[in-house]
Amino acid sequence: MINNIWILIGKKLNGEASPEELLELEQLLQQQVDVVMYPMDKLEEIWKNDQQIAEDEKLLSKWAAFDAELDAVEEKEAEEAAQVIAVQTKKKKARIIKLGSLLAAACLMLGVFWFTRKETMVPGKSNEITAPKNGISKIQLPDGSRVWLNMGSKLTYNNDFGTEERKVSLVGEAFFDVVKDPQHPFVVTTTTISIRVLGTKFNVRSYNNDKTSEAALIRGKIELTVLKNPEKKIILNPSEKITVINNQELQLKSNTPTYKIAEETPLIALSRIHQAKKDTLPSEALWLENKLAFDAEDFENIAQKMERRYNVNIVFENEDVKKLRFTGKFQKESINKALLSLQKTAAFRYKIDTNQIVIY
């Protein structure tokens, strides 16, 4: 009988037990008065923790593989740059042709234009790096930390970077791979949140026009502060993300009752990052592979991402359509094909006039 109980418990924890088997398990557990066993809720908690640890280990393994791929590309770029320098000592015309082809090859990575640069501090002024609208910029900061800037995003840091703290300001979205230095904490500030780290990998999204800001942690630990509530510190652990509403005042000025806002859109929401089995990275960082990913997001948020990706302007003429939720990802699809794909799962219409799109 004990063996049968454990078989049923295994099925329950795996989500494979039928209603009849669940009823049988409950009856058997009630009969085991003299047998010392863990409470069912305790067993479920241990099971979930073990499953989460396994998922986190898989995620770190996938990120390590992706990180190695980026390092290999960087080494190749360095080798090609050295070849360019060697060619410079030969024929000038040949150098120009070679340089053009090498730059074109170096720009194409993972289906997106990459612009790589190593940053050095310029005395007496702040340093500002802006990614082009059609590509991703990869930056190496003076301390060796690496930053990937998504399309149109901007990173700024002063010439005292690293003196006491390593402070940077971000508008847009970036992925950070921070060199560990306990004596000089790394601080990322946006218009809504501030993140303090020692050494870690994490993604930050904070565009000025977006309704929310988001920080997703891949590895390490970060301390996040919402600037409107600076006395409260939030610690994120690996595979966790936090979403913050950017403009509470706009929410309160809308026609939605305050109690409904509190129920439907919490000012701060903590959740797990989303990792599909076939993806190399969590959806929050798939833009590094030139993929537009969204996980149960409303259409209004997805439209903002589409505007940045396709350089278009999207207008909604139906408030209900804004609230439609979708999960998916696009990579090589045109804006028209992407909208057609979304249209297969929800009822809405759209019309395209050059760069202007109306959804109704």
Rank of each mutant, 00 (worst) to 15 (best):
A276C: 12
A276D: 15
K277P: 00
K278C: 07
D279P: 03
D279L: 06
T280I: 15
T280A: 13
T280W: 10
L281E: 05
L281F: 07
P282G: 08
S283Q: 14
S283W: 09
A285N: 02
L286T: 06
L286H: 04
L288K: 07
E289M: 14
E289K: 15
N290L: 04
K291P: 00
L292M: 09
L292V: 02
L292P: 00
A293V: 00
A293C: 10
A293H: 05
A293E: 02
A293D: 05
F294R: 01
F294N: 02
A296V: 04
A296R: 15
E297F: 04
E297H: 08
E297V: 03
D298Q: 06
D298H: 13
F299K: 05
F299H: 04
I302N: 04
I302G: 02
A303Y: 07
Q304T: 13
Q304V: 10
K305W: 04
K305C: 05
M306R: 00
M306V: 01
E307K: 09
R309W: 13
R309G: 01
Y310E: 02
V312Y: 00
V312P: 01
N313R: 15
N313T: 15
I314L: 09
I314M: 06
I314S: 06
E317C: 12
N318G: 07
N318R: 12
N318I: 09
E319I: 12
D320P: 04
K322R: 14
K323Y: 06
K323A: 13
L324N: 11
L324A: 13
L324Q: 11
L324V: 08
R325Q: 13
F326W: 06
F326T: 07
F326V: 07
F326N: 09
G328Y: 01
K329N: 15
K329W: 10
K329E: 13
F330T: 00
F330Y: 09
F330I: 02
K332W: 01
E333P: 02
S334D: 09
S334I: 07
I335P: 00
I335K: 02
I335Y: 01
I335R: 03
N336P: 01
K337W: 03
K337N: 12
L339R: 13
L340D: 14
L342K: 02
L342V: 03
Q343F: 04
Q343K: 15
T345Q: 13
T345E: 11
T345P: 00
A346E: 13
